[in-house]
Design a binder for these strands. Structure first.
Lengths: 295, 295
DNA sequence: TGTAATTGATGAGTGATTTGCATAAGATAA
DNA sequence: TTATCTTATGCAAATCACTCATCAATTACA
């Protein structure tokens, strides 16, 4: 199963004689003659007929030459590809995260990174934080951006951003008092958490990390809200908040353009961290991307 | 460039540890460990990270495994294909011949042979005898069926059939005397060659072997005919002979259903022979086909 | 924390493989 | 026939790959 033997056969086919091919390959004629014998033994068929005047290929020989070209070529390409991957000219970054990370954190980061590394591809997976954790542990993903704290052990983590969860409301919502949309938040229009009691809320899915965070915060504040819909995506929540003139809690990162209602006595925060498998080594591309994210 | 090294890597990927993979491969753990080092050196990149608990693949390693599967698989298939070729279960017969051979000799022979050897394919090339000769010498064809004598040296020849060239005429042609088409030829309706003097003739191309044969025969008989058209295919000549109510000389093999005019003092014969390159060895399939033709 | 177990790497010795050189053997061309 | 070209082969040297035994690193568990 030595490709050098097939390669030798290919060169012999090009040159027509074993002696010439040997020169080209930089080995002695006798060595090449024996290589061909070995190859014929390995493949179990007669590849060429030796005659006084050079060699002549059998049909099997011709076929072996054809395939030999393909195989040696592929081997060479593989070698080149591998060093391109190593030098980060090529490669894949498999990264996963929740709605906020995938929707608002990743796009600009990927855009910036891609500009510097045109050969690198991304595979992005959107899923819940705990699901992403598992995928990283399983080796399906190189990196994950998840809400702390982690459940799984064996993960490297590095804090990325502290993310505030803010209350957003439809533009005609009764709680939206005074002033226009372009007014900065936190400008004295604050409301109290008690005012939220019993109001309808468009929320994230049950069991998602962010949902649990919000539920806990409301519980602590002694407020009960009425979750009327459960969704996965921030943009859908924002649209529904507007169209149903109700309320929602979303990441400040995703709420920038929407109407944010500051709640005086309700601070919901979470920390998003970049995770990777502790043992498994990162691909050069993922390594570089992780470094950029941490900067 | 040893596929066994890549194959080893593939098995390690399947088993997860070098030790397990070594058992599966039937070598010692240390041997396999060194194989992997050799492979990493050959490819110039780190393929896997050794840890206390098994090994973990780098991105390059994963890529190498993917490609390794393909390469080893192809090598295996090649080996199988070669032995199928050797045992004549597969293969190609490249054969060439003139109009008569390709049109009337080869089809039944190929049909019979294909029935016995379903895996074999044919590449048939129609060309002039001398062109076929050259193609056989050049190794483009395995076999040829040509008119003797040969021009090229270095050819094996074995006589196949003695072929008579007969005169055919359109059904309304003045020379067609008496009786209907189903009457056997040579039954007393013979004409003399002198009767052909100056008559229009649909003939083969100038420079073709059969044309020269006919020209020579007419010259010997002291008859000059008027070649009004020059064609390559027997069936076209037969159609034109009928539609223009003129005369033509074609092989008796191809003229069976047409109106044959026996000429008392004109015997044109040629010998068709199967040729192959003297040095170049025949593929098993071509070998078998040649044997059947000679039988 | 310490100890046993698991797993890979390494040094040394050995056998197999590959190579080069010189030469023989086979075929071709003149 | 001889000269020439081409491949095969005997032999010795070098190289390579393997096994065995052991070490080193990590993990699992008490």
């Amino acid at each position: 199963m030595d490709l050098r033997l097939l390669e030798s056969l290919v060169v012999v086919a090009e040159k027509g004689t074993i002696g010439e091919a040997a020169k080209r390959l930089g080995v002695s004629q006798s060595a090449l003659s024996r290589r061909l014998q070995t190859l014929e033994f390995d493949l179990g068929v007669e590849l060429l007929v030796r005659q006084g005047r050079g060699v002549v290929f059998t049909e099997m020989g011709r076929r072996a030459v054809e395939e030999g070209k393909i195989l040696t070529d592929r081997y060479g390409r593989l070698k080149e590809e591998l060093s391109r991957i190593e030098s980060r000219k090529e490669g894949v970054v498999r990264i996963g995260g929740g709605a906020t990370a995938v929707g608002y954190l990743l796009p600009p980061a990927i855009a910036r990174f891609s500009a510097q590394h045109p050969g690198l591809r991304f595979e992005v997976r959107e899923a819940g934080s705990r699901e992403v954790e598992q995928a990283v542990v399983a080796g399906e993903l190189d990196l994950g951006i998840v809400t702390l704290p982690l459940q799984q052990p064996d993960l490297n983590q590095s804090p990325l951003v502290r993310d505030r969860i803010v209350l957003v409301a439809g533009s005609q919502h009764p709680l939206v008092r005074g002033s226009s949309a372009d007014e900065a938040s936190g400008s004295g229009l604050e409301i109290e958490s008690t005012e939220l009691q019993g109001l309808p809320l468009v929320g994230f899915e049950k069991n998602s990390a962010i949902r649990r965070l919000i539920d806990d915060a409301l519980l602590n504040a002694g407020v009960t809200m009425n979750v009327t819909m459960e969704l996965r995506s921030i943009s859908t929540i924002l649209r529904l908040v507007e169209s149903t003139q109700s309320l929602g809690f979303v990441s400040a990162l995703g709420a920038r353009q929407a109407r944010v209602l500051p709640v005086a006595d309700l601070l919901i925060e979470r920390e998003l961290a970049l995770i990777s498998h502790r043992d498994r080594c990162l691909s050069p591309a993922a390594q570089a991307f992780a470094e950029q994210l941490n900067r």
